[in-house]
Amino acid sequence: MDAITTHNLTKTYGKNTVVNNINLSIKKGVIFGFLGKNGAGKSTFINMITGLVNPTDGSFEILGYKGNSIKEIRHKIGVLPDYSTFYEDFTALDHLKYFSKLLKLSLTKEDLITTLKRVELEDAIHLKTKQFSFGMKKKLGIAQALINKPDILFLDEPTSGVDANSVLNIHSIIKDIALNGTTIFLTSHNLDEVEKLCDEVAIMNKGTIQTGIWNS
């Protein structure tokens, strides 16, 4: 079974077509790279297949479920959006406690601390996020996306705007997650990044797939 399948998936806003007839088939267990410059339509594509935005036309399946049934499998999906924001006076641990309650997860404090350690935030467990660097916020966003142990993880520009050392750390985290069998859908505008990380790559340009999928 494929992790994601789309059939002529399309999103328009007025006369502007942001995503145009996208057909993709992504195998389970791979790191899939969705390459394209800012404004290519990558985030809109993710928002559709995670249920945040309704398609204008076309259809999709995720983990074997049709798009109109996505509520049934949201507990199997983790998402790091490109616009992650946090409550400034919450610590890293406070955030994971809050989101675990929203998701109705039965997780102990030790479970949440283990997740923070997994993303290399063990020194920031009790630090308020207003003191976080941009790279630390990206890692907390990844931790938040992992607390439900998802079968598929969407990472929207996970290293955008972070320093070189944080990029290396985040790459290491992504590889570690993939080794445990999680399917990862990664958007980026960095060709070097997707070549290093991804098993398969597709290029999006002005809402369309510019070339077919190729193995990285």
Rank of each mutant, 00 (worst) to 15 (best):
D2P: 13
I4W: 09
H7A: 08
H7E: 09
Y13I: 03
Y13M: 02
T17H: 10
I22T: 07
L24Q: 01
S25D: 12
N38E: 05
M48N: 06
T50D: 00
T50C: 10
T50G: 03
Y65S: 15
Y65A: 13
Y65N: 12
G67W: 12
G67S: 06
R74C: 00
K76A: 04
S84D: 13
F90L: 13
D94W: 11
F99G: 04
L105V: 04
S106Y: 06
S106T: 11
L107C: 06
T114M: 09
T114I: 07
R118S: 12
D123I: 07
S133M: 11
G135E: 06
G135Q: 06
K139D: 01
G141E: 04
Q144T: 12
Q144C: 03
A145R: 03
A145K: 06
I147Q: 00
I147H: 01
D151Q: 14
L155G: 00
T159N: 08
G161H: 14
V162S: 03
V167W: 02
N169T: 14
N169V: 15
H171E: 13
D176E: 13
I177A: 02
L179C: 06
I184M: 02
L186Y: 06
L191F: 07
L197H: 05
C198D: 05
E200W: 07
E200S: 08
N205K: 15
Q210P: 04
T211F: 12
T211E: 10
G212K: 14
W214Q: 10
N215F: 11
